[in-house]
Design a protein around this nucleic acid. Structure first.
Lengths: 196, 196
DNA sequence: CAGATATGTGAACATTGATAACATGGAGCG
DNA sequence: CGCTCCATGTTATCAATGTTCACATATCTG
């Protein structure tokens, strides 16, 4: 367990601690409620300390977004392989659940206020890189024109609709099953998935 | 032209002036770049003046959102009546174009940071109230379950996808025609529109 | 062990949202 | 007309925030 929690440095691995605390605050208070001083206070460190690890608030937010994309990718990679239709459904479900479980982070990941200097770290759209049949790009060319890109666009739209409350989930409902069904319905309307 | 620009009050109709200036700043600088002091300065008034008209920054943002919904509704009402399929397509196109033309305002309208005390003023989903055959609610019950609500959910998702850059529009392209086509394609997949 | 470098601290500064006390000008009434 | 009252706007002020700078301390390298 001596992987990363230990203190290789002076006060501990601050950068990681900051990011973790920031993720919690972000999810609880929203992006506007994430202040650098609060953050420093939460980690038990001086107000100027974060500046040793991030160029400023904007850079901190960008690092958070990168973290988000990493976790997002990890969640995708964790999906067991399957034949394309099932895989697609599973990825869609994972996509939407990730958005719901990390609402503010997800919003941040696609926020226009990001300068995206670390663009390559923000890997989108999702892929299963181990699978040559994986679904590929959507954002780069003009995705609307590419039939095999539409499913992701649709799933993303679905996620945002849920986040925006345009598709409400009644309390006490089986969220996961409901999501799965919505995704399935949504994808059924999509054109067939083309192997790359 | 003496409709509303004139000065019925002391310094002029400040509330309206503030809202108009705020809309411009919001579109140019984004929500984060909209400061009360900048705003006051832009209108040529003291920094404390806006507080006579809005309870604070949050209230100002909420008022902006309400304004957005009003303009949105107005845009919808301006659509000439037609038979349901054509009407639907026209409303979808208007919906998406509104989102693109007022990107930051649109984002604000659906932002989770709004307390929505003025909920009734935030009229969504869009309706053509003069038409009994109009399309009705989506958000209130559980829209995913209601077949006739899905088109709006889909159009909203489309708008957000465009805003988030997941569906890119190449520069110098006929935006309007492209949007119309995307909306048409998207709606064609939707279940038939049911008259209310 | 010594110096260089990375990391954290404390004190500052400008700016912001917000509030309170004061000023002003028009509306309404005698 | 003249007076008061109230909505509106101003100035002064405060606490909090992002940011920077000079300084301190721990870690690493030679």
């Amino acid at each position: 367990m001596s992987t990363s929690i230990n203190a290789p440095y002076h006060h501990g691995n601050l950068r990681r601690a900051l990011l973790e605390a920031a993720l919690i605050i972000l999810e609880r208070e929203g992006e506007a409620g994430l202040g650098l001083r609060d953050l420093a206070r939460a980690v038990g460190v001086s107000a100027a300390a974060p500046y040793r690890h991030f160029d400023g608030r904007a850079a901190l937010l960008e690092a958070l977004a990168v973290t988000g994309f990493q976790r997002f990718t990890a969640a995708m990679e964790a999906i067991p392989l399957a034949n394309p239709p099932d895989l697609m459904a599973a990825m869609g479900k994972t996509y939407v659940l990730f958005a719901l479980d990390n609402a503010n982070l997800f919003r941040l990941m696609f926020s226009p206020q990001l300068k995206r200097t670390a663009a390559p770290a923000c890997a989108w759209p999702p892929t299963r890189r181990s699978k040559p049949c994986a679904i590929s790009a959507v954002a780069t060319p003009r995705p609307a024109a590419s039939p095999r890109s539409r499913p992701w666009a649709r799933v993303h739209g679905l996620a945002v609709l849920l986040l925006d409350g345009q598709i409400a989930i009644r309390a006490g409902e089986d969220t996961e099953a409901l999501i799965a069904e919505i995704v399935r319905t949504s994808l059924r309307l999509a054109p067939a998935i083309l192997p790359v």
